[in-house]
Design a protein around this nucleic acid. Structure first.
Length: 126
RNA sequence: UAAGUAGUUCAUCUUAUCGCUCUUAGUUUUAUUAAGAGAGGAAAGUCCGGACACCAAAGUGAAUCGUAGCGGCUAACAGCCGUCAUUUUGCUAGAAAUAGUAGAAUAGGACAAGUGCAACAGAAAGAAUGUACAGGUAAUGCUGUAGUGAAACCGGGUAAACUCUACGAGGUGCAAUGUUACGUAUAUUGGAGUGUCGAUUUAUCGACAAAGAGUCUCACGCUCAAAUCUUCAAGGGGUAAACAGCUAAAGUUAAUUAGUAAUAAUUAACGCAGAUAAAUGAUAAGAAUCAAUUUUAUUGAUACAGAAUCCGGCUUACAGAACUACUUUAUAU
C-alpha cells in the first residue's frame, strides 16, 4: 500500500467542487465533516479528495495551513480504508468545523471514525 | 554587576521514518528512480512611491486630491541624510537677563488680497475707544496714564479655519494583458444611423450643421460609420482550462574609493521559492533556552506570524538571544 497523496488524488477542478457542494451528502464526526458524491471522474484512483478550513473559524492563515496539513496527513495515512472497500469512484471534501487548533492524534482518530461511518452508510445503500 | 532607553544582527537545532511542489538527468511510455532547490523580518496592514500592462493621442483648462524652511540622495516618494529655525529637557557658567553644550519634538510657505473665529475677565476682541485723571486744540479720543486679559490698533493673533501661493498627480490593475483550446458565438430579438450644399463615376465622394458613443467628473479638444457594417438596449450560455506574463532583479555578499551622511562607483564571488481548493509538511527520539514544581529529575512553554506580478519605503505584531551607545543605581579601586 502506497501512502502517497499526489496531484491526481487531489480534488482540484472548480467545476467538480461546485457540483459536490450542490449535490453532495454530508457525514460528521466532530470536528470533521465529510461531503461526498458518487461521481465518475476518470482518474486512476477511486477517490479524489480535498480539505478545507473556514476563514470564519480560524482567522490566521498560519493556523489554517497547519490544520489543512494535518488533515491531509491524516487522510494520506488512512486512505487505504477507502481504497480497499470502494468499488465506484467518489469525490470527497473534508471540512474542519472547530474554532480551535487540535492535535494530530485527535484528527487522525476522528478521520478513521469518519471513514468507517461513511463506508457503513454507503454499503447499506449499495 | 543590575535595570532602563535607542539602534543593529539572529530568531531553536540534529537524526530517523513517511510524504508534497518545482527543476535537471535517466529508465521508458506515463508511471517510476536519482540528484538539487523549496517562506519572512515583518511574507501582515494595503498607507505612500515606482516598474510593467491595457485604456482608439494618453492632450489643455477647471474642479478635486496631495506636498510645503533650505540643501542633498533616489527610478520615485508623504521615505532617508545633512543643516537652519522654533519649542522643550538635562548639565555647566552667571546675581539675573542670557550664553555654551548634549538630547528630543515640530502638517516649519503666506494673515502686506478677501472672509471667518477668539472661553473667562473686560466698556470694547477689530466699524475700536467707555470711564477716571493729566496734558493739548479753533474743534474732535487729539495725546498719555490707570483698569481687564495671553493679546487692546499694532502691517495685532489664528491657515492640523475657509482661502491664497508654489510644485506635483490621466484612469484601471497580473482576475492587467497576449496566445491556444472548448463553445452554434460575427448567437438571437428590438431601437437608432438625420439634414443641407457641391462634384460627378448616379450611388458614391467631399464640405458644413445637428445628434450619438468613447475619452473616471465638467468644459474644450480629439477619436469613431456605411449593411456579412457601426452603436445602444434587452438577454442566454460558458471557461474560470492550458501556456506565456512569472521571476536575473533599481539583485545578494565582501572589499576598495568618493562623500559629514543618506548614497554612488569599481572589482570579485554567488546565481537564491514560483504554488493555483494553492507545495515548502507530519510523526518519533534527542539536544538547547526559559518557567514551575520539587530538588536534580519531572511537567509545561519556545514569539509574531505563511509568499501569490515584482521592487523601494512607512505602519502595526513579536517569546527570547548576542553586540554597540547612552542614562540611572549599588559595590570595589
Amino acid at each position: 500500500m502506497q501512502y502517497t497523496y499526489s496531484k491526481d488524488e487531489k480534488l482540484k477542478s472548480r467545476k467538480l467542487i461546485k457540483e459536490l457542494f450542490k449535490n453532495g451528502k454530508a457525514a460528521t464526526v466532530y470536528p470533521l465533516r465529510m461531503i461526498y458524491l458518487k461521481k465518475e471522474h476518470f482518474g486512476k484512483y477511486p477517490v479524489k479528495a480535498g480539505v478545507s478550513v473556514s476563514k470564519r473559524n480560524l482567522k490566521h492563515a498560519v493556523d489554517r495551513n497547519r490544520i489543512k496539513r494535518l488533515m491531509r496527513e491524516a487522510y494520506r495515512l488512512n486512505k487505504h480504508l477507502l481504497y480497499t472497500n470502494l468499488e465506484e469512484q467518489y469525490i470527497i471534501m473534508f471540512i474542519y468545523l472547530a474554532k480551535e487548533k487540535e492535535t494530530f492524534k485527535l484528527i487522525e482518530n476522528k478521520m478513521k471514525d469518519l471513514m468507517e461511518k461513511f463506508l457503513r452508510r454507503e454499503q447499506k445503500t449499495a
